[in-house]
Design a protein around this nucleic acid. Structure first.
Length: 641
RNA sequence: GCCGGAGUAGCUCAGCUGGCCAGAGCAACCGCCUUGUAAGCGGUAGGUCGCGGGUUCGAAUCCCGCCUCCGGCUCCA
């Protein structure tokens, strides 16, 4: 047989040669370092025969993602090994590698709960198995054999997995992997032995529904991570520690931005500094919207249930709405602005010459999210979206969608966000005909392709009234959150019987586009806070400059300077406490104020300020006027940092 | 909503195998200091131990219910 190496060299091997044989043929160093091979895009065990004629890549610890996934999958098996030894009667289910490590889901016997306090003992047992360098041995067995084995062991989840493989894929054999005393139903691949895992740590325990189905058993999931070396593990743990320090919930309190209360779960209380930040973003949204032909409207918070029945929310989302009643009439607090905007559109006659109509509204929304899903500012019950709805003709859809995307990118560029695009298509529960969905999905896909944009397809995740393009980004711990969205909707115009008069003097149905860039200001500020680690750029900083008089006799000059800057619309505070200047500078640094302006005898005399830049230190003296111009310029241009 | 964990002063935490008046640091307040670029010194005050019920001579500590938060799962218009 013959395979080709990544550099193009051909390698002749005996028929039936394995990955290990290939590695050995290349060199003894590689033979020791080899973990697996990659052929035809598939990572395969070293012990398996090679695919004749296929290019061959040997996976070693230096192979990045593939290599990490491999040993993390190994680690998951070792976790299951330790757990089955320490907790007799435990049922195992699945344990894959994930981005940050691995997990394994277990069902512990009645009355047994595992907590983080149990981790040291489990880790200890795991390390023993790593040290023993137990080989991963693959065995392909018939379905009947596998079923008999796992039934005998009472491993119900494995039995179900096999039965499903037979039903869905018609498999006749399955593969088992044994390491030491533990054998798992597993597709593989694995490294040759457990000792390739150099360092591991169990991280958390959580509940997880079997097969992600909330109607089925809640299993116990143990999360962990693994690396080739202790050093890499320690670096990762250090990185996590740093990430936690930029958690917006922590920074929000430390920087005096917002707070939460038990009395209104899922709703932020915005402190003055946070409100300033919030309002700055709302102003940005207004400005950018106006430049793009959006006009602002204001619609009610509370609507009779009639409106929600028309929009379809009453049937589909009533449980997530806050409802109230007065004088025998039932009302719902709006979870979204679109029905209000559709209703508003309907209240006048429109000509095709008027379209597109673009309504924007930073509207206050309430959604009764399940208590367990609330998460700081990132998942709340009370929030304001930078929401907008476009009513346009069928012919205008393409361009409007593209304009929405441009608007989103322009917004994110200001902050240097990396966004991931997702195209979400028809969900199971939906309104509107299949023909309508075909058309709408095709339009969005076309818009993405025309722009040459990379995106991920997210089947079944569309809104109930139409498909959407979502813009996602991640928080400091790598969790993905949706910010912007562009949603195409042929359904709401139908349900609200919206129309416009065409050039042919006949009535036509407009198309509705729902769009937001930041998503909600709440979530956006959460992400923004973590993105900047609280070091907001000057134009966003709640306090842009803090004036620090050296001693009491400079307080007047400090107040005067601050007043002058404030008259130019700059956000300036004075800290005239009788604390040492060192102390006040330290606190201003911790509060992440971009500029500190020190005023002592010399500055008071000359009408200057000694400028100190956050994290940078003393930058020398400027006249107050020169500083004002600099700050004004940075604010107006929304300079980076 | 589900599984697990947590809730003690404004913040970070100790105390929690039941029993001396519930402690510390930081912050706050008062006084002294009048300060030149990341913590000056001294003093004072501050807590229904998340809420409700129970066990007990006695509960922050044990038990039950609820609320909120944290990590996940499910959900996410």
């Amino acid at each position: 047989m013959k395979v080709t190496l990544p550099d193009g060299t051909p390698l002749e091997l005996e028929d039936g040669a394995t990955g290990a044989d290939a590695a050995a043929a290349i060199g003894p160093g590689l033979a020791r370092a080899a973990l697996a091979v990659k052929q035809a895009g598939e990572v395969r065990d070293l012990a398996r025969p090679l695919l004749d004629g296929e290019p061959l890549e040997v996976i070693t610890a230096k192979s990045g993602r593939d290599a990490l996934d491999l040993i993390r999958h190994d680690a998951a098996h070792v976790l299951a090994t330790a757990v089955t030894e320490l907790y007799p009667g435990v049922k195992v289910s699945i344990g894959p590698p994930i981005d940050a490590g691995f997990y394994y889901d277990f069902e512990f016997p009645e009355g047994v709960t595992v907590t983080e306090a149990d981790f040291p003992a489990i880790e200890q047992r795991m390390r023993e198995h790593l040290k023993a360098a137990e080989a991963f041995e693959r065995e392909d067995v018939t379905v009947a054999e596998a079923l008999e084995r796992f039934r005998a062991e009472g491993q119900d989840y494995k039995v179900e997995l096999i039965e499903d493989l037979v039903r869905d894929q018609g498999v006749e054999t399955v593969s088992l992997y044994r390491n030491g005393p533990f054998t798992d139903l597993c597709r593989g691949p694995h490294a040759p032995a457990t000792d390739r895992v150099g360092a591991l740590k169990l991280q958390s325990v959580a509940g997880a529904y079997w097969r992600g189905d909330a109607s089925r058993t809640m299993l116990t999931r143990i999360y962990g991570t693994a690396f080739f070396t202790k050093k890499e593990l320690e670096a990762e743990l250090e990185r996590l520690e740093q990430a936690r320090a930029r958690d917006h919930r922590r920074l929000g309190r430390e920087l005096g931005l917002f707070t939460f209360s038990e009395l209104s779960p899922g709703s932020a209380f915005w402190l003055p500094k946070g409100t300033t930040l919030f309002n700055t973003l709302v102003a940005l949204s207004r400005e950018m919207g106006a430049e793009r032909g959006f006009t602002e409207v204001k619609t009610p918070l509370l609507y009779e249930s009639e409106l929600w029945k028309t929009s379809g929310h009453w049937g589909k989302y009533r449980e997530n709405m806050f409802v109230t009643e007065t004088e025998g009439r039932e009302f719902g607090v709006k979870p979204m602005n679109c029905p209000g905007h559709a209703h508003l559109y309907r209240q006048q006659r429109w000509s095709y010459r008027d379209l597109p109509v673009r309504y924007a509204e930073p509207g206050l929304l309430h959604r009764n999210e399940l208590s367990g899903t609330l998460h700081g500012l990132l998942r709340v019950r009370h929030f304001i979206q930078d929401d907008a709805h476009i009513f346009c003709t069928e012919e205008q859809v393409q361009e409007e969608v593209q304009r929405c995307l441009e608007y989103s990118f322009a917004t994110f560029d200001l902050f240097g966000f990396e966004m991931q695009l997702e195209l979400s298509t028809r969900p199971e529960q939906r309104i509107g005909s299949d023909e309508m969905w075909d058309r709408a999905e095709a339009k969005l896909e076309q818009a993405l392709k025309d722009q040459g944009l990379d995106y991920v397809l997210n089947p079944g995740d569309g809104a109930f009234y139409g498909p959407k393009i979502d813009l996602h980004t991640t928080d400091s711990l790598g969790r993905s959150w949706q910010l912007g969205t562009v949603q195409l909707d042929y359904s709401m115009p139908e349900r609200f019987d919206l129309s416009y008069i065409g050039a042919d003097n006949a009535e036509h149905r407009p198309v509705m586009i729902h769009t937001a860039r930041m998503g909600s200001f709440e979530r956006f500020i959460g992400i923004l806070t973590e993105h900047y680690a609280g070091d907001f750029p000057v134009w966003l900083a709640p306090v842009q400059a803090l004036v620090l008089p050296i001693s009491d006799r400079h307080a007047g000059a400090a107040e005067g300077a601050a007043a002058q800057l404030r008259r130019r619309g700059l956000r300036v505070d004075v800290d005239a406490r009788t604390e040492s200047i060192g102390r006040r500078i330290r606190e201003a640094e911790l509060q992440k104020v971009p500029y500190m302006l020190v005023i002592g005898d010399r500055e008071a005399q000359e009408g200057t300020v000694a400028v100190r830049r956050r994290h940078e230190g003393d930058e020398g003296t400027l006249t107050l006027e020169a500083f004002a111009e600099r700050l004004e310029h940075e604010t107006a241009t929304r300079a980076g940092s």
